[in-house]
Amino acid sequence: MLQDLLGALGLASIYLLFALGMSLTWGTIDILNFSHGSIFMFSAFTAHLLIPYVPMGFVGVALVCIVVGALMSLLVQVVAFEQIIKRARNRNTAERQILIGGIGVAIIPLAIAQEVTKSNPFGFIDSGFEVTTWTFMGLRGTNILLITLTAAAALAVGTAMWLRRSRHGLALRSIGVDSEVSAMMGVDRRRLAIVTMAVSGGLAGLAACLFTYTLGAITPESGDTLLIKAFACIILGGVGSTGGVVLGSVLLAVTETVVLTRTSGLWVEAVAFGLIFLVLLVKPSGLFGRKEVRRT
């Protein structure tokens, strides 16, 4: 039982790291980035390609993932989303085209990774970091699990504080609440959006590094599944609320663990989709939603 809970928390941490970046851009600069999953996958893929040539160790792999994630995310913002926003007739069409554009852009890294790996799973073999197992009071775990839990907790608190305290966070939140007001406050929306996207990509990269170490290997398509799950986590808690994403991630991971251990078959995949549906039907603003859901 406790063992399952520990596993669920580990899973929740991965969801959280992935969803935190998506939530950050969606809640503040109104960008629901559907290439987040591809960026996630490709950052781990880049590290995977570099490992045979450069001895890196854990920190090196993590850094490569974070930097690649941040750079890709930044690139997507400048090349794709900024162009879309520039051309969009109004906010609704911009929102729509950003979703579609994200899906379109995501095809490219996915195609490259599928081509190189022939759609086989890839991992960080011989990275100079060994996953070791420990036992404590009857609970078994790995060193990577501890790192994942710590990183998720620290980054969630960090993001929340960043949003609450710093000048940057204040500006971001004001964009999230009212872009006109923030424009009057002299917030440089473009620079903020780029920084936010880069941070979001960095978080995806870190999530990818930890996820790959945890599982041993991931497939090029694994970003797609996580994308939907992260969406579930975000709306479960409510868009724009960091605490909400934490709660959403834990709730999703725990529910999935329960379903996985109590039922036969492959129903676990349905949990996220079912939760999305349920939340949207019952309380579209989520449990802690700050932003009002725009309706038809």
Binding site: R96, A270, A272, F273, G274, L280, V293, T296
Partner: peptide
């Protein structure tokens, strides 16, 4: 009662269900 992205994601969930 849903619009925009929320509707899109609800229908994506429907497909995957």
């Amino acid at each position: 009662h849903l619009g925009g992205l929320y509707l899109a994601m609800a229908t994506v969930s429907f497909d995957l269900i």
